[in-house]
Computed example of a mutant assay.
Amino acid sequence: MRFLRVQGGYFLNESLVAKWDVAMRNDPPHRDDWSQGDAAAHYWEWLDEEQQLAFLDWLVYELSHTDGGWQHKRDLEEILHAGGSEWKVGDRGGNPGLEKRVPQGVADAVDAVIANSATAGALLSEAWHAAFGRNPDPEEAYEKAIKAVEEAGAELVLPMNPKATLGTMIAAVRDQGDWRLPLESASAVGAPLEMMKSLWEGQESRHGGNGYRKPTPAEAEAAVLLAVPLVQFFTAGLLARPTPPVATE
């Protein structure tokens, strides 16, 4: 099958197919009748759509740990892009695998924030993978999105409170009243404060009893995309209080 071909042959070879079979306990039919050159094509056609996606997700991880794997991952990404797939080859925070395709500018911005935000970036990477990865976990994604913002901003907003949450951060930013983005606007804090409130109040899984509800995939994706600029605002010092004037004698 042409989908599995790359320059110089197949990147799905017998050893990879066998390794996947062992991991998934698969038993492809007529395996003994396949020739070495056609094994990949036969195998791909034997899988259903869900198995194909699972196989590709696993394959991206395997290729990340082989010599020349970067080239094969690039080839696979070109094939997925050319075919208009909703999936792409992703690799954030050491988590290689398939993830949902977002506009390239958004992906680049997320990569930059993750790379430059230390622990908050690591949490944001985990949130992104849980929201957009092949096996999404909306509850995990939403929780890690909030934790990323807390890690980025809690010590700045409430330096004397080691147990600060996004909820207490919101109250402090509102009550302190002098947090600003570097914009010529008296209400320059309004947008990020509303983003923080939306992120915090939208997590219904924080509540016990009758108020408990897991977030939907769409809610988790929105939460992660809200967290990205908030982490950037704090870690880059864009959302800040005015520096007190230096006392002079």
Rank of each mutant, 00 (worst) to 15 (best):
L56H: 11
G121L: 01
D111S: 10
P159Q: 08
A223T: 03
D21V: 07
R241M: 08
E184L: 14
L123Y: 09
T168I: 07
G133E: 01
L181Y: 09
R174V: 04
E151W: 00
L4E: 14
G8Q: 14
K163V: 09
G167N: 07
A191R: 15
L47K: 05
A41V: 03
L226Y: 05
M24Q: 14
D57Y: 02
A122E: 06
F55A: 10
R25L: 11
R241T: 11
G68C: 14
P245Y: 05
Q7D: 13
F132Q: 02
L56R: 13
R206L: 08
E78D: 11
N161G: 09
G9T: 08
V60R: 00
V17A: 15
N161A: 03
V231E: 07
G97N: 07
E86K: 11
S185G: 07
T235C: 12
L16V: 12
H129C: 13
H65C: 12
S125C: 07
A236N: 03
G68I: 01
F132H: 07
Q36W: 15
L226T: 05
E77N: 14
V89K: 06
L4T: 09
S198I: 07
D111L: 04
V106L: 10
K19I: 00
A120E: 06
P244H: 07
L123R: 05
S187K: 04
A18D: 14
A145R: 05
Y10A: 05
T165G: 12
G167V: 05
R213K: 13
V60Y: 07
F3T: 02
Q203M: 10
E140D: 11
P136L: 04
A23K: 00
T248D: 15
G90H: 08
G202R: 01
A164H: 10
N135W: 09
A54K: 15
A109N: 05
R74W: 09
F55Q: 15
K19F: 13
P242L: 12
V89Y: 07
A227R: 04
R31V: 15
A222G: 09
G211Q: 01
E219L: 12
